[in-house]
């Protein structure tokens, strides 16, 4: 069995302590929470941090609540907690859809929302789901906190705006009453990373779409989203032909790469097809609300 190289290990007891440890160990330190992305990389020796800062005891990052019209999701919330939350189910069906197809139930018990986003895998499901919801990320550092739109959080594969010495603290998502949302993913097998996936948020007033969010993953959509397709939807009727056109526009902004999950033309096709399906499901849910 593969095993990691040597490293130093520190258990953080508070956010300031974690930040102090990050400062002390410098850029070769990594934060570990669930560890389900980082530890396999370390076993394969694709990652060899000199120190691990364990933040699993930081309960102040494990909150999940609605405050000030926003859902606040602490970075340390486990996937399983998000999936089981009635609060999330009530307002954000898309997150339930997405969590249900992230890895597997046992991994979800350990893996965290913040860990997934900070790993910044170009196929991350939550990146697309939170992008569709137009969430904000709150990043904490020695100089205090800053808020970054999730759509600008990822700077490229495995890169985020979180600087050495900083921590992702929470995600904040506006609660939109009457909105519907959904997430659609094609995977080769349950538990696999997506071949492609799309999330959608839709708000309908007086029979017309007044707000739309589209998230895409595994297809190299800039910012995990498709703003032009979102703009197209505004003011139109929530009907299949409109969703299909939005899907086409979403597919057009993707730049997928061929790999063993599929060729580029297939992934681009899926981006459109899954956007259409997610929009349709989101609209249906909005209507049911």
């Amino acid at each position: 069995m593969q095993v990691p190289a040597r490293f130093e290990y520190e258990k953080a007891t508070s956010v300031p302590h974690a930040l102090a440890l990050l400062e002390r160990y410098g850029p070769d330190a990594r934060v570990v929470a669930g560890g389900h992305s980082l530890i396999p990389m370390m076993k394969l020796r694709l990652a060899q941090p000199e120190a691990l800062i364990d933040i699993n005891d930081l309960r102040e990052l494990a909150h999940l609540r609605v405050e000030g019209g926003e859902l606040a999701v602490g970075a340390l919330v486990r996937h399983a907690e998000l999936l089981a939350s009635p609060l999330v189910a009530e307002h954000f069906a898309i997150l339930i859809d997405a969590e249900r197809v992230i890895a597997d139930p046992v991994v979800r018990n350990r893996g965290t929302v913040g860990g997934s986003l900070c790993q910044a895998d170009p196929s991350e499901d939550l990146a697309a789901a939170f992008a569709a919801l137009k969430a904000d990320a709150v990043v904490t550092g020695p100089g205090g906190s800053r808020t970054v739109p999730l759509r600008g959080f990822h700077q490229g594969p495995y890169e985020t705006v979180v600087e050495p010495g900083e921590l992702l603290a929470e995600l904040r998502v506006p609660v939109r009453h009457g909105a519907g949302s959904a997430y659609e993913k094609v995977e080769r097998r349950v538990g696999d990373w997506p071949v492609a996936a799309a999330g959608a948020l839709i708000l309908i007033e007086d029979g017309l779409i007044t707000e739309a969010g589209i998230g895409l993953t595994a297809v190299s959509a800039p910012g995990f989203t498709a703003p032009e397709a979102e703009d197209y939807l505004i003011g139109r009727e929530p009907v299949d032909a409109v969703f299909a056109e939005a899907g086409r526009r979403a597919a057009a902004v993707c730049n997928p790469h061929a790999d063993q999950r599929g060729p580029a033309d297939y992934k681009r096709h899926l981006a459109g097809e899954l956007t259409r399906r997610a929009l349709r499901k989101a609209a249906r849910r909005a209507a049911e609300d």
Binding site: V186, R188, V195, R261, G262, P263, D265, Y266, H269
Partner: peptide, 11 residues
């Protein structure tokens, strides 16, 4: 017959 292979077969 993975999803991509099935879809490509259809194409």
């Amino acid at each position: 017959l993975t999803p991509s292979n099935v879809w490509r077969a259809i194409q």
